[in-house]
Write a protein that binds this DNA or RNA. Structure first.
Lengths: 186, 186
DNA sequence: AGGTCGTGATACAGTGTTGTATCATTCTTG
DNA sequence: CAAGAATGATACAACACTGTATCACGACCT
């Protein structure tokens, strides 16, 4: 965000911008600043007052999403809990942030800063996977990258299922756990 | 593609355009026609000779990808084979088309024609899932949409694993089967 | 109530992309 | 080899988006 802004942004204005931007950019990364302003219910000039340019806006949203993810993950990170419980908590906590999460997945391809922060997050997941292996919940025959890719996809699928209203949040989390650990067989 | 073109496109030119466009648009849907032409090793004017406009190009690629997917799926569609074998064949045949497949996944959000063709494809997968359920390979407790979503993701993940060179094509297909049916547990 | 400050609206120039037209060049085909 | 056709290169106008500046309005605070 523009650092030396003469104007101070109103909280309501900022939240409207972030929400509209995440929503629109998830569907179409090429959404114009006009569209974003309109959907946020603000003037385009206000956008430019607080964000130097388009890239500044996107980067701000990126770091904002990462912060929210970090907060969610931190709430789960109790080393004494069994790995499987931490996994379940992660699905429960992170899946509701699905739209923010997906924004990061899309943006990491374009922004180096987002990519690095995202990879740091993956490091946390790597450690979780290692614990899951150590406790025999996941086979050592399966490459770690495959496991993290599955978890990554399951978070997004679980959010979509809830967003499309064919599963409750609790059901989606359980189904994600089952898919990862036991598959979909009878 | 422009129907009443005075010029006839050379096969090599067309293939170069399609390949470059799929590759670039997968990374960045906003890639300019200039970029695409350069990466295809052709002049930008040639692009405009054969495609009325950007949308025409994208739609052509969309239908092209769908045709390739149809051909791959058709080769698998032997009603006498057990459902589980058809599933395995699908991973083997479709995963190598991962980049084309991903283009469709991205584009179905923007183009109504692509969306419809894509949904038709999903209908084929729905039928496969139904067979898998009938033969007890997949539990009826799991919603069909969840299963199709998993298959969708697994195709893409398998292709990525091969593209990133940490699994062979055969390993990726087997791991996709295992993940879907038995999970990653020991 | 009045002053301050964030906001909306508008105008403007700069820029990159798009689509068309034209001509020279290269490739294909008979 | 020669004719025809596809392509490359270039110039051009139209267009949308971006970023800046300016002024009037309205919300918030004391």
């Amino acid at each position: 965000m523009k650092t030396s802004g003469k104007h101070v942004i109103r909280p309501a204005t900022l939240e409207a911008i972030v929400d509209a931007a995440v929503r629109l950019l998830n569907v179409n990364i090429g959404a114009s600043l006009s569209e974003i302003a309109i959907h946020a219910g603000i003037g385009r000039a206000t956008l430019h007052r607080h964000f130097r340019d388009r890239n500044d806006l996107i980067r701000f949203i990126g770091t904002r999403c990462i912060e929210e993810m970090n907060a969610a993950v931190l709430a789960v990170d109790a080393p004494d809990k069994p790995a499987i419980e931490r996994l379940r908590s992660m699905f429960v906590e992170v899946a509701p942030l699905g739209d923010r999460y997906n924004f990061l997945r899309l943006e990491r391809r374009r922004d180096e800063g987002v990519r690095q922060a995202y990879n740091t997050q993956l490091g946390w997941v790597d450690a979780l996977v290692e614990d899951l292996r150590a406790q025999g919940e996941i086979s050592r025959e399966v490459p770690v990258r495959w496991v993290t890719a599955q978890i990554d996809q399951l978070v997004w699928t679980a959010w979509q299922a809830v967003a499309e209203d064919y599963l409750s949040a609790a059901e989606a989390s359980e189904l994600a756990m089952r898919t990862l650990l036991n598959g979909l067989k009878d």
